[in-house]
Amino acid sequence: MATIEFVDVTKTYPGALRPAVDRVSFTVPEGAICMLLGTSGSGKTTLLRMVNRLIDPTSGAILIDGTPTTQRDPITLRRGIGYVIQQVGLFPHMTIAENVRVVPSILGRPASEMAARVDELLELVGLEPGEYRGRYPRQLSGGQQQRVGLARALAADPSVLLMDEPFGALDAITRERMQEELLRIQRGVRKTILFVSHDVGEALKLGDQIVVMSEGRLIQQGTPVELLAHPADDFVRRLIGGNDSILRQFEYLPVTTALEPGTGEADASDEALAADATLLHALLRMMQSGQSALRIERDGATIGHVSLASISRQVQAGSASTGAPVTAQ
């Protein structure tokens, strides 16, 4: 478990006109998935690679559990941080098992001690150990290779995981499946994850929080709901929604954002909707059942209701909102 704190982090490459990362400050809480979202050239990958000191900041500091990374030996630092990249970068001459245990092995753990752990990790990422541990990377599909990449990053049980567009090279169906797998795995391991993405849908789906970057600067930081409901400026609004803004809100806002007290017009005997359902779920349920209001439950207790009217108010507020942006310091 670890928090990551960025304090005025700036990186200027020699000869560059403007900083690649410009005075960025924010904090990733322990156990959260923080999505770094931005277009290419926004500095998100540079920011990520400064955490494990593959790049050193020009000024500012990155603190992991309060300790500046620059005070730590880069090699030791990296061994305690999981690292997953888009091109996976498995070692083609090693078997899957050898790939997975590579970090423990450079830490001096003998292979015999690692056998059970390798199997456990392969199972965690959804690969049958008996079938896969002896294979070579070239015998695996892109999605399977990235599963191994994830297992490899988790092998030494790091508290921080850096993921640089890990699913960016996968086809849409595999990508979606991997996103769900990551959420499932994260529920068990609770790592502090910094995840670079240029895919808004991915950021909204995976992020506990999203940091929007553009031209090296942090534009907005907030939860998916905060970003959808209160985009800081036109850039964020365009990035997040564009013309699909209303659709995105249906897809990603939980029903609790349109919650009204009591049961309202909802039929108390009707089946209730869970609180973690999205507005889209609510709308679909209403259309199927012909109701105009639904009871919302959390842990079996009614916490309120949503209606067509309350959803409509919420979505219109989000699309039109210009005020009260949730910006970082």
Binding site: N52, L54, I75, T76, G80, Y83, Q87, V88, P92, I106
Partner: peptide, 27 residues
């Protein structure tokens, strides 16, 4: 040698000689 393999090797904390001995030379 695949630059991604080297980036991954460095990113997970291999020293320069380890990258050479464990990744580059075998390949």
């Amino acid at each position: 040698v695949d630059p991604a393999a080297i980036d991954a090797a460095r990113g997970m904390g291999m020293t320069r000689p380890q990258v050479l001995a464990r990744v580059e030379l075998p390949l």
